[in-house]
Design a protein around this nucleic acid. Structure first.
Lengths: 191, 191
DNA sequence: ATTCTAAAAGGATAACTCATCCGTTATGCT
DNA sequence: AGCATAACGGATGAGTTATCCTTTTAGAAT
C-alpha cells in the first residue's frame, strides 16, 4: 500500500494532504521533532487511517515537508556552479545549505540520513549530488579546497555544524561556518 | 523518589546495579541507542520497578554509564593543561575528547546536552569546564586559537564532528578533526 | 439530475513501550 | 532468631504506532 501520488488526487484528498502538511509544519516550528502521526491526524481533523494513507511512513512525511527547501538547495547548487569564482561558489552553496537546514528542520533531517524513499526526493538528491559535486570539483581544482574531502564528507560535516548551531545562539551560525570553511581550505603552502 | 545512592548499597542492590550497567553497555555496543528500561530490566533478569529504582530516568542511566569515560576526559584535560606547548595541549584535549566520545556513545550523549542531573556528573562537568577553559585560554593567549570561540562552542562543534565521524568511515575521524583544528586556528595574518 | 463505482475517509483496535504503584521478599542489624 | 526496612518484581494504566475494514463521497457516465 504505497502513499498516494501527489499528482492526480481527488479534490478532497488534495485538501487533506495540504492540511496535514501545514499541521506538521506548524508542529515542527513549535519544536516537536517527533511528528506523531496520530497527533497530526487528530489536529488536522482526519482519521488516523487517512493520515497513513497519505504518508505511508514517517520518512515519506519528512520528505514531503522538505521538498520545497530541497528544491531551493538544488537551485542554489546550480547557481553556485555558474559562479565565476570557484571558491566563492563553494562558499555560497555551503552557506545556503546551512541556512536552509536551519530554516527547515525537515530538510536537516532528510539530509542527515540520505536513504530517500520518495521518487521526487531521489531525483532531487541526484540533482544535488551532481551539481554539488561539480562545485566541489571546481573549487578543488582551483586549490581552494583541500584534497581528500568528498561530497559526502561535506554533507556530514554540514549536518554536524547545523546541529551545533541549533543548540548554540543565533550568532553561532557565522562563527561555526567560518571555522569549517577555513578548515576546509587547502593548507599546503599557506604557512 | 530519587535514584539509589551508589555508595552504601545493600549487597543485592549493588549486584543488580552492576548487572544493569553491564547489560546497558552491551546494548550500547550493539548499536541500540534507545536503552529501553523495560528491555534492560528483562535482559538483566530484574523487575521493571527495580530498574527504575536504580536509575530514575534515562538521563541518570546515561550519566552512570558515562562516568568512567567522563573521568578519563577530565584527566586528559588536566594533562593537557600541563603540556609545555599550549597549542599541542589544545590539540591533545580535542583529540582525546573525540576519541572518548567515539568509544563511548554514552559520553557523547551526555556531553551533547549538558543538563547534568547526577551530583557526580555535575562535579565532573565543573572540573572539565575549569581545566578545559584553562587549556583554551592558554592556547588563545599563544595565538593558536582564533578569538571569539568559547569553550561551549568547542563542545558543540566536537559533538557535531563526533556525529559526522560516526556515520562516516573509520578514517573519517582524522580528516574531520583535522579540518576542525585547522579551522580553529587564528587566521589573522596567516595569509 | 440520477446512478454507479472507485477512491478516500474514519476510527476501532491489536501490538508495543514507558513508567508507576504496591504487595512480597530478602538483607543485615540487634 | 527476630525484626525493621531496604529492595525486588511484575501487574497495570497511560500513551503511541500502524493496520484493517466499514462507511462515505467525489466525480464520471448516462
Amino acid at each position: 500500500m504505497p502513499s498516494l501520488n501527489p499528482e492526480k488526487l481527488r479534490a478532497d484528498s488534495a485538501r487533506v494532504r495540504e492540511l496535514m502538511l501545514s499541521v506538521a509544519r506548524e508542529r515542527l516550528r513549535a519544536g516537536d521533532t517527533d511528528l506523531p502521526m496520530n497527533a497530526i491526524a487528530k489536529q488536522a481533523g482526519v482519521g488516523v487511517g487517512t493520515a497513513y494513507r497519505h504518508f505511508e511512513t514517517h520518512q515519506v512525511l519528512l520528505e514531503a515537508l522538505a521538498a520545497g527547501s530541497f528544491a531551493a538547495l538544488v537551485s542554489e547548487a546550480r547557481a553556485a556552479e555558474r559562479d565565476t569564482d570557484p571558491a566563492a561558489g563553494f562558499a555560497r552553496i555551503m552557506r545556503a545549505g546551512l541556512r536552509l537546514m536551519l530554516a527547515d528542520p525537515a530538510l536537516a533531517a532528510v539530509l542527515s540520513r540520505p536513504s530517500f524513499t520518495c521518487d521526487e526526493t531521489i531525483a532531487l538528491g541526484a540533482e544535488l549530488f551532481e551539481a554539488f559535486g561539480a562545485v566541489l570539483e571546481r573549487a578543488r581544482a582551483a586549490g581552494a579546497v583541500r584534497p581528500g574531502i568528498t561530497g559526502d564528507d561535506l554533507r556530514r560535516l554540514m549536518c554536524g555544524v547545523q546541529h551545533a548551531v541549533r543548540t548554540g545562539g543565533d550568532d553561532a551560525s557565522e562563527r561555526y561556518l567560518g571555522v569549517l570553511l577555513d578548515g576546509l581550505q587547502n593548507r599546503a603552502g599557506s604557512r
